[in-house]
């Protein structure tokens, strides 16, 4: 599945739930499947700023593809990171950089989050894109 198809999948999953409490339940469940960051990377260096809860994010390159792992001390935050990781992890840096990530708006998550949480979400996206750009350059150099 490419990124756009994965985004479509998430949108369909979310549309099943009418009540936001159910959407949050779904996010909480998603958080439980988040590929956890290796404890040794849970350092300030991998901490994303702009979040009220602590979020660590790590990316690595394997066979030209970028793989993401993360963790947070807040469960809902874990669910939100999980959404991004599920959609983006396992794709090439170029694919990730081209991702529109429309689904974040479509599922209403951005507007539904409190401003502090929405900022945190933007910071996560920025950090992932930053990793992708660095890896893209690295791949070109090789």
């Amino acid at each position: 599945m490419n990124i756009a198809e994965k985004e479509q999948d998430v949108m369909e999953e979310f549309s099943v739930f009418e009540d936001w409490m159910d959407k949050y339940s779904y996010l909480i469940e998603l958080g439980k499947d988040l590929p956890l960051i290796n404890e040794k990377y849970k350092t300030n260096q991998h901490l994303i700023s702009g979040c009220q809860s602590r979020v660590w994010l790590y990316a690595e390159l394997k066979d030209g593809k970028m793989f993401l792992s993360a963790d947070s001390d807040a469960i809902i935050t874990k669910g939100i990171v999980s959404l991004l990781v599920n959609v983006l992890s396992g794709h090439t840096p170029s694919e990730i950089l081209e991702a529109k990530l429309d689904f974040l708006d479509q599922i209403g998550l951005k507007e539904h989050l409190s401003p502090t949480r929405a900022n945190g979400l933007s910071s996560m996206v920025k950090q992932i894109m930053l990793y992708a750009r660095v890896f893209q350059i690295k791949l070109k150099e090789e």
Partner: peptide, 9 residues
């Protein structure tokens, strides 16, 4: 539980 999770719900 993180206070932020409780507050959000």
């Amino acid at each position: 539980l993180h206070p932020f999770d409780l507050g959000t719900l």
